[in-house]
Simulated scan of single mutants.
Amino acid sequence: MEKQTITIYDVAREAGVSMATVSRVVNGNPNVKPATRKKVLEVIDKLDYRPNAVARGLASKKTTTVGVIIPDVTNMFFSSLARGIDDVATMYKYNIILANSDENSQKEVQVLNTLLAKQVDGLIYMGNDISDNIRQEFSRSKTPIVLAGSVDPDEQVGSVNIDYVAAVEAATTQLINAGSKQVALVTGPLNQPINGQYRLKGYKQALEKAGLAYDESFVFETETSYHAGLSLFNQLKKAGANAAVVGDDEVAVGVLDGALDAGVKVPADFQIITSNNTKLTEMARPQLTSIDQPLYDIGAVAMRLLTKMMNKEDIDEKTIRLGFDITTRKSTR
């Protein structure tokens, strides 16, 4: 038997009140007599009435829904950001639709358009690569968009992140000061601004300040996976590196295990600093030294910035940079 859809009309008829009264009760409007409210709530309970979000959206021109595009739902970096986004969304009574883009630029455009078709009031984008296609879709859309934990070098789109240049410079300098003169940079594709324009710049600045020559054979582009890090260690060794700043924690654990498999002692013979300080850094042995970016806060602040945009509030600054630290553990000397 097909489940009948219970409408606001059915609730009003059963409770002997107007539809406006039911609407007030459902929306938490205080202008309802306590006895009436109680009666309406009892009927809602009995009929198992659920307000139709689509109909409400049509009436108010708002769906109170936010789309979140996440490149890889299994990566702890993104899931930590998502926690912060979700908590603030709940606080401001927004629902979230989470969409996985698999770090694939065609799929990203597709996912973006699917979310826009669902009439979301705003979007949070977590991808590291803002392709020209995605940028085109961003500028065509009237929907407010905020980047979380990613960068827009043109600063056209609102974003919340840390100073990736300063963070990588500090990490590289720490390795050099601890006696490693052959520091490698292990990062995602350099055509992504966060890597090619920010992390690489910080790395070069640290070398320059230490009076060391930049050697591009010490820069490694890799996928963000454990296996990519594991198979990379032999190349790092072949290049003559004795330390690495790694852009992703899963990759860093792979590099660490690759070193241990090769009988290389960490940190005595090879030092590692990773970038996201997710739970993985403490699960690894030895535990990993990491740039500590406040992932939960980045997500939370991004969602708060988006609520301001959606409500057309005044915004002082569209690019928000939060502070970072370096948490020293056992993978550095």
Rank of each mutant, 00 (worst) to 15 (best):
M1N: 09
E2S: 14
E2Y: 05
I6S: 04
I8P: 00
Y9S: 11
R13A: 10
R13N: 07
A15D: 05
V22W: 01
G28N: 10
V32W: 02
K33C: 02
P34E: 15
P34L: 12
R37G: 07
K38L: 11
K38H: 08
K39F: 11
I44V: 15
D48R: 09
Y49G: 03
Y49R: 03
R50Q: 14
P51T: 07
A53F: 06
A53R: 12
A55M: 05
R56Q: 15
K62D: 05
T64R: 15
G67Q: 08
V68L: 07
P71R: 06
D72T: 05
V73Q: 05
S80I: 01
G84Q: 01
I85Q: 03
T90H: 08
Y92D: 12
I97M: 13
A99V: 13
V109E: 04
Q110S: 08
A117V: 03
V120H: 00
D121A: 05
D121K: 01
G127C: 01
G127Y: 00
D129K: 06
D129N: 08
D129T: 01
I130L: 14
D132V: 07
D132C: 00
N133Q: 07
Q136G: 14
E137T: 11
R140P: 03
T143G: 00
A148T: 07
D152S: 04
Q156C: 06
V157G: 01
N161G: 02
I162K: 03
Y164Q: 09
V165T: 08
V168W: 03
V168D: 02
A178L: 09
G179T: 08
G196Q: 11
Y198T: 08
K201L: 14
E208R: 09
S217P: 03
F218Q: 14
V219A: 10
V219R: 09
F220E: 02
T222G: 06
S225M: 11
H227G: 11
G229Q: 02
N234H: 07
A241P: 02
N242M: 10
A244M: 09
V245H: 06
D248W: 02
L256G: 02
A259Q: 04
L260A: 03
A262N: 13
A262M: 12
G263I: 10
D269K: 05
Q271Y: 11
I272K: 03
I273W: 06
S275M: 15
N276C: 13
T278K: 05
T281G: 10
I291F: 12
Q293M: 15
P294F: 13
V301K: 14
R304W: 13
L306H: 08
M309W: 07
K312S: 15
E317S: 15
K318V: 07
L322S: 04
D325K: 15
I326H: 10
T327Y: 10
R329N: 11
R329E: 12
K330Y: 13
